[in-house]
Design a protein around this nucleic acid. Structure first.
Length: 747
DNA sequence: GACAAGCAAGTTTTT
DNA sequence: CTTGCTTGTC
């Protein structure tokens, strides 16, 4: 494909007139600052955009793509844009549509996995996959691994399935196949290799593809089929990547194959926000990029449009403690804003109490609750905040729970559908052969498995063979034949129906819906509702205007792929007016007017498992940087002097990250005096306990606690709701909040 | 096949 | 302390 003559657009206004889309060009260019504009209008070559938090990275991507189409004259089909999450892909697509006022559906905008899946569907045969291949999510994968372990007779206690899964995925992420492994390693290596091999065989026979496999397969497809690779190299004139610092080895290898001829790779990322090293993301890819594309250009986006000066100053100072950064300093035209507020809690309940109290006041001042977030390092921390919020009757929403498509009943229903799509899907076969129970027990299943293994065939084929052999007892044979007939009948009945009718028929005729309806003990009612919701989801799928499809997906295939690849989608709704609770990891990419960064304690944040390793500690620091830069107007940071951990009281030290915050950006909240006063970075840890005359309790008094028994008050501090006392009980010294500990004066 | 008791473990998560 | 999972019993 011949390249059109290209003009440099650095001096934009002069050239505008040459184009008929003058309006569009100004809408594309005008809202950008200099660095952004430079990135958007750069000629086609390898570009690395280092985009700090809140510096408009999505804007640059969106405007860059618009620029390519409107000014460079590229057709939408020649645009590829890759993201990590479906949410990011959706947002990019819709923003392009808004900006250009055209449909973007002919552009390939999607996740690495979504795009890989699409490619594999198109080139299934060349990728050595059956047309009917199905995508497994990680729960499916875990089940398959458990099966493999059982088949190989490995003790699950010694070889935990989770660990095996982690190992296999790590291998695939590095592009390593089981056949590449050597038998020479130690027992661990050899065993893992054997399991990996058996797992690969099973997946191949069942037509199952896990997430890592999607990427690896596409890499191999392109590597081994130069004609196919050349086709896509020519088709995609511009390749855009979001969150480049999160790419792993195979994803980057895949991008390089695609762009090695034209160097047409435009990546946006932030080394300071790389927080997924633990799951294979290679921050090194940013450095690799500079070597692999020698003619690349680097543009830094450092102007921040989100946060106040104080917040940015703290973020800059903290991240400056990391080594080997690309180097970047955020700045803003906005003023310094409010100081960051630091609260030292006595225990985790006090911490929650304080946070919720501030949220209540903030909401009462007329702010929308969903503009406010509580961010924590680990999920377990959410509980006390939830309890407090519930007591205060403040609606809240916790991110990261069980997702719709991950629910057991949904997975079972999907297994029926998958077996209809592909009879040799062993994982689905096993899941549903006796659910609902139909008298097929362990014996029958063992026989089927044995036959499948000896004849190297799928469980479905083996089941038919077993039945025909007539070796089973009449009862078992009847049960098995009943199951096979059921699937055959379902397939016939559902054949011509629209998707949602298919789902409905499957739920009814399989007896699955009845099975849960009768199960009153285990929230069966809720499960039935979920199953009905699945029918609904399928109906939406039917109604959605599917873009004219170049690929040969059946609606059922699409639906199943959607369930595996976009399982998070259904929980994204329902924002309402809720306080947002989430981990720091899930907060990446989001912003809130008011942010509470809680639990800044050594051992918790940074996490205990990370403190001995510089690389991991630096990732924790980046996580802290991510957390701080979520805040737009006001940031609170809290830590507790005591915390219940695994049923034990612990007395953690304040997080080292606190000491990295410049003193002139932060103030300590002093409830007792109802004022805030500046705090120096040195004395944060050394907070003297204050001895005060208290309303009811005084040092020296003896009190009774319903759980700890009788004790003596050592000291007290705080007033009103925040009054607390330190009491020496037989089992130790405790700080108690008078507002919840029901203390009784003994004398 | 359902249910209870016993036991071990206990960051971060998307696809 | 909690949760989730395996084990054992009816």
């Amino acid at each position: 494909m011949a390249h059109k003559s290209r003009i440099k657009y650095t001096q934009l206004p002069k050239f505008c007139k040459r184009y008929k889309f003058i309006m569009d060009v100004t809408t594309i260019i005008d809202p950008l600052n200099d660095a952004q504009r430079q990135a958007v209008t750069a000629p086609s070559k390898a570009m690395l955009i280092l985009a700090g938090a809140g510096s408009g990275k999505t804007r640059v991507l969106v405007h860059r793509i618009a620029w390519q189409i409107e000014v460079e004259g590229l057709s939408p089909q020649s645009i590829l844009a890759v993201t990590f999450t479906n949410k990011a892909a959706r947002e990019m697509r819709s923003r392009i549509e808004t900006l250009l006022n055209v449909s973007a559906h002919s552009m390939w905008i999607g996740t690495f996995h979504g795009i890989a899946h699409r490619l594999l569907r198109r080139h299934a045969a060349d990728a050595k996959l059956p047309d009917t291949f199905q995508v497994m999510d990680s729960a499916d994968q875990l089940r398959v691994i458990k099966r493999v372990l059982a088949a190989l007779n490995y003790d699950e206690a010694k070889w935990p399935a989770k660990q095996v899964q982690w190992h296999i995925n790590a291998q695939k992420d590095e592009g390593i196949r089981a056949r590449h492994g050597l038998e020479t390693g130690d027992v661990y290596q050899r065993t893992m290799l054997r399991i990996y091999r058996a797992y690969e065989e099973l997946c191949d026979r069942s037509g199952l593809v896990d997430f890592a496999e999607l990427l690896l397969r596409v890499h191999e497809l392109w590597r081994d089929n130069p004609a196919i690779l050349a086709h896509y190299q020519q088709r995609f004139q511009q390749v855009h990547v979001d969150e480049f610092q999160d790419t792993n080895t195979i994803q980057y290898a895949w991008l390089r194959l695609l762009t090695q001829e034209s160097n047409n790779l435009f990546v946006v990322g932030d080394d300071d926000q790389s927080i997924y090293g633990w799951r294979g993301a290679k921050i090194e890819n940013i450095y690799g990029f500079q070597q692999h594309y020698p003619d690349h250009e680097v543009i830094k986006l450092e102007q921040n449009y989100r946060s106040t000066g104080n917040i940015l100053s703290a973020a800059n100072k903290i991240i400056a403690n990391n080594n080997g950064r690309m180097g970047k300093e955020l700045w803003t035209e906005a003023g310094r804003g409010e100081p960051i507020l630091l609260y030292t809690a006595f225990n985790e309940q006090d911490e929650a109490y304080f946070v919720v109290e501030r949220i209540r006041a903030w909401a009462e001042a007329g702010n929308a609750r969903n503009g406010c977030a509580i961010l924590y390092r680990s999920n377990a921390q959410s509980r006390q905040f939830e309890e407090r919020l519930m007591q205060a009757a403040i609606p809240y929403r916790v991110y990261g729970g069980l997702r719709f498509f991950d629910r057991a009943e949904i997975k079972t229903a999907l297994a029926y559908l998958r077996l209809l799509a592909n009879r040799h899907d062993d994982a689905s076969f096993e899941r549903i052969i006796n659910t609902p129970t139909r008298g097929i027990g362990a014996k029958a299943l063992d026989d089927i498995r044995a036959l499948a293994r000896s004849d190297n065939q799928s469980l479905w084929a083996a089941a038919i063979a077993l039945l025909q052999s007539g070796q089973q007892a009449a009862r078992a044979a009847n049960a098995l034949s009943g199951f096979l007939m059921l699937i055959k009948k379902l397939a016939e009945q559902a054949e011509a129906l629209p998707l949602h009718e298919k789902v409905k028929v499957v739920l009814e005729k399989s007896g699955l819906r009845d099975y849960y309806a009768k199960d009153t003990a285990n929230k069966g009612e809720e499960k039935v509702e979920n199953l009905d919701e699945l029918v609904n989801a399928a109906r939406h799928f039917d109604l959605a205007v599917l873009p004219a499809d170049e690929d040969n997906f059946s609606p059922l295939d699409r639906f199943l792929a959607h369930a595996a690849l976009e399982s998070g989608d259904m929980q994204a709704e329902d924002f309402d007016d809720c306080v947002q609770l989430m981990t720091l990891h899930s907060a990446k990419g989001l912003e809130f007017k008011l942010v509470f960064l809680v639990g800044l304690e050594e051992g918790l944040f940074p996490s205990q498992q990370s403190v001995d390793d510089i690389a991991r500690l630096e990732e924790e620091r980046r996580l802290c940087y991510v957390g701080i830069t979520r805040a737009m107007e006001q940031l609170y940071i809290t830590y507790s002097e005591s915390r219940q951990l695994y049923g034990r009281e612990s007395y953690p030290k304040p997080s080292r990250f606190l000491r990295e915050i410049p003193a002139d950006t932060i103030q300590e909240v002093r409830l007792r005096a109802q004022i805030t006063r500046p705090v120096t970075t040195v004395n944060i840890a050394a907070k003297p306990a204050l001895l005060t005359e208290s309303n009811h309790f005084q040092a020296g008094q003896t009190v009774r606690h319903e759980k700890f028994g009788v004790g003596r008050i050592l000291q007290s501090e705080g007033e009103g709701k925040h009054e607390r006392v330190q009491v020496k009980f037989a089992e130790g010294v405790k700080w108690l909040m008078l507002s919840y500990a029901k203390l009784e004066l003994v004398k």
